[in-house]
Design a protein around this nucleic acid. Structure first.
Lengths: 115, 115
DNA sequence: TTTTAATATAATAATATTTGAATATATGAA
DNA sequence: TTCATATATTCAAATATTATTATATTAAAA
């Protein structure tokens, strides 16, 4: 239903320590709620709340196995986000080349402190 | 200084419509605040606040050109995030193959509705 | 040197997110 | 049937984020 939720909304939802941890686990395979209770130092209701939010946004889904709900990743964007989160970056982006132009003004001027 | 801010914190900061728009613009080149006032239907102080938050986190930086502050991207993760946000994804991830195992239980059971 | 343009900062109000506590539901077992 | 287990839902309190308004800063221009 809510497949309309924008990418930024998805990013926002994913950008939470508990939810990233959950998604990281699910990226390794299906997990039920009590499996997740192992890793996360969160109450069961809170974990369920995070799972429900992720599911409402179409980011994960589950199948039912008896008393268990077995969650798994659904939205492929998650894989890419997780990859970025563990990627190594070397240094900052190169600063602007000399004399870039903005609509209102022109370089050069004093560069700020921490560059 | 705050280079310690974790990746998830960066993700969280970036996951805001105004800030994503700002970063998208900066990814095309240096922009000063009043340039940004063009695109964004936000007050000048609010734009400055978003810029300040992004700068505190080391995501962007600026140089000074007279009365202007010319902002540019600093953290390379932004480029990857922007790329993901405009990437095309075709369909959902494949569901779990038959009979994956969770610690607590085993497939199969009823699959949930929207798969 | 006063004024103006560009931008930043501070304080607050409005709103959203997060967690915790209590309770509900559903399923398999006894 | 009743019970226990696994999980979800609801509501409220605590907290964080966001936008607004007013004011401050800084540098160039007049």
């Amino acid at each position: 239903m809510n497949v309309l939720i924008s990418r930024v909304e998805i990013l926002k939802l994913v950008a939470h320590p508990a939810r990233i941890t959950i998604l990281g686990e699910l990226s390794k395979g299906v997990k039920c709620v009590s499996d997740l209770e192992g890793f996360l130092e969160l109450s069961q209701p809170n974990i369920s709340q995070h799972l429900a939010a992720l599911r409402r946004a179409g980011i994960i889904d589950y199948f039912i196995d008896g008393k268990l709900r077995c969650y798994f990743l659904k939205n492929p964007i998650v894989v890419d986000i997780l990859e970025i989160l563990s990627k190594e970056y070397s240094g900052d982006l190169p600063g602007p080349e000399c004399c870039p132009t903005t609509k209102k003004g022109t370089y050069p001027g004093k560069r700020d402190g921490n560059v």
